[in-house]
Amino acid sequence: MLGSGPIERLHPAVAFAFFALAIVFGMCMCHPAFQIVSVAASVTCLLVVRGKRAWRVIAAMVPVFLVVALANPLFSTMGDTVLFTYFGGRAYTWESLVFGASTGAMFVSMLLWFASYSVVMTSDKFTYLFGGVIPGLSLVVTMALRLVPNYQRKATEMVTARAGVGLMSGGGVRERAKDALSLLSAMVSWALEDGVVTADSMRSRAYGAARRTSFARYCFGRYEAFSLGVVVVFALLSMACALSGAASFEFYPTIAWPDSSLLFWLGLASYAAFLLFPTFIGVKELVRWRFFLSRI
């Protein structure tokens, strides 16, 4: 069941901080080793969050990766190692291909982080988190999220009602698209009419009368503080190492593996610790339940 896992139960602030940092740092780190860690961590995180269904998403990333990687040498001829030439001498270089693969890995890991993010950061967590900063707009989002399924149901109801008196033409795609559009426009009237009632109901329940507070469904206790601390400390440590040159990598003119210094290993280790944090708590819980259940 969605929403029951340990990652889903993280405080929205912790979850949001983690994903934001993971995505932003993922875009900064150029070293292939760092990128491989990011891809691996995003895959395991998605597996923990979505279970078996994650494999379909992960499989869909393979062609994306290939397109991004293989396309780069077509636009960039930089690099000394020519793999082959085409179009009368245009070079397809190894360095460009690797650089493309590096971008591809970055892109794929970003998509995978977003895939986990979409499951974990549900709309109510999002509006909870931003309710304090942008109270009006986050209320609009909350309301729109109620209205969307409401309007979908209403649209179906209208289609049924019109079919029941023989008004749906049911012709080709063009006809149907036209019918759908005019239903949409008809919906506007009563949607706003209902909106008047909603606005009354809001004002009658003191909307705008005082400074809004947010109902806290989430507790920020010691566990949350600790989790946030782990995430932030390891993230900052890895970033510090990266900025000191641990994650720099030269693709052109030829690929140069920098010496693996202590700084590099420290940076990589803390990067892994940071990114694998959700996987870790997910697996920990899994093991605990297995163990626990096996004794029942």
Partner: peptide, 25 residues
């Protein structure tokens, strides 16, 4: 009021219960 649906403001039951209290701060 009359209309059970249009009076609701938010998308979740808990949020609806809390809505007035949030407004009162």
């Amino acid at each position: 009021m009359q209309d059970p649906d249009a009076q609701l403001v938010t998308d979740k039951v808990w949020h609806e219960l809390a809505f007035g209290l949030e407004n009162l701060g």
